[in-house]
């Protein structure tokens, strides 16, 4: 059988070795990129007013990190991001499960979902300002709207992927609705949910920064806007780099959670599916 366990087998070791090599290459690429940014303004290809060299961005970053206001802004951004993501995830999972389980509800809601989903969250900025002004709630509205659909749609797909044999097995052993949700539908949907949450986490960050930039809700986005208007170009770049770093950390964190909770899934368990 091809399904025999191969965890920790030679292919695993090889993959890990290749991973280390790739990481080194990636690091080299990043260093090259930073060196390029250092070189371009110094060699006069671009004005340092538009793109300051890496070293001055780094200096600005160091200065930022010694400023308490920076940390407050970072905290505000992360609060908006995390709270929004949490609300969107909880709402998306609940709504997705209810829509999947209640007969005919999926069909009844499909066209509405397809209509609401493509509305760009930024189109709601005027509404957010109207309702909440420059409050954190404005950020939350945009973040939740953008992230909710990502999670909802994945839950809908995930539950639909339930194996009829698994479902019949559960029914034949007398599992009730709640037990079937918990032991069959939820684990089946979980890989999809994880993908949805990972996408939602990235989108949430985009929307959190956007809301702060455009509306002026407190956070890194607002600080970037301030740096721009006060012509502190290296600070602006430093803050942009910080948002990028947050994005990287969020994605890495989401992947780690995914791998841990889906150890049983064929995408993670590291073997050839038959």
């Amino acid at each position: 059988m091809t399904r025999a366990a191969v965890n920790g087998g030679p292919s695993d070791v090889r993959r890990r070795g290749a991973g280390r090599g790739n990481a080194l290459l990636g690091l080299a690429g990043l260093c090259g990129f930073l060196a390029l940014i250092e070189a371009l303004p110094r060699l006069g290809f671009v004005s340092p007013d538009h793109l300051p060299p890496t070293s001055s961005i780094a200096a600005a970053l160091a200065e930022e990190t010694s400023d308490a206001a920076f940390w407050t802004a970072l905290g505000d951004t992360l609060t908006g991001w995390a709270l929004g993501l949490l609300i969107a995830t909880a709402a998306g999972i609940t709504a997705g499960m209810v829509i999947s389980i209640v007969p005919y509800l999926r069909e009844a809601t499909a066209s509405t979902v397809e209509f609401l989903r493509p509305i760009p969250s930024v189109a709601l900025i005027p509404l957010a300002v109207l309702l909440f002004g420059t409050d954190l709630r404005s950020t939350l509205l945009l973040v939740v709207y953008a992230a909710f659909w990502q999670v909802l749609v994945q839950v809908l797909y995930g539950v639909q992927d339930t194996d009829p044999v698994a479902e019949e097995t559960a029914r034949s052993y007398g599992l009730g609705t709640w037990a079937r949700i918990r032991h069959v539908l939820w684990p089946t949907a979980l890989p999809y949910v994880m993908t949805g949450v990972r996408l939602a986490a990235a989108v949430s960050l985009v929307l959190a920064i956007t809301a702060e930039l455009v509306i002026g809700a407190p956070g890194l986005g607002a600080r970037i806007a301030v740096a721009q208007t006060s012509h502190a170009v290296p600070d602006m770049y430093a803050l942009v780099a910080v948002t990028g770093l947050i994005g990287v950390l969020i994605n890495a964190g989401a992947r780690a959670v995914e791998r841990r909770s889906l150890a049983w899934h064929q995408s993670v368990r590291g073997e050839v599916s038959p």
Binding site: R3, D163, V165, A166, E168, T169, S172, Y173, H183, V184, P187, L190, W264, H265, Q266
Partner: peptide
């Protein structure tokens, strides 16, 4: 009543 299905791979839950 217990049922044993032909498709054991799909009848057993891979997450358990």
């Amino acid at each position: 009543t217990a049922v044993v299905f032909q498709e054991y791979g799909r009848s057993l839950f891979p997450w358990m």
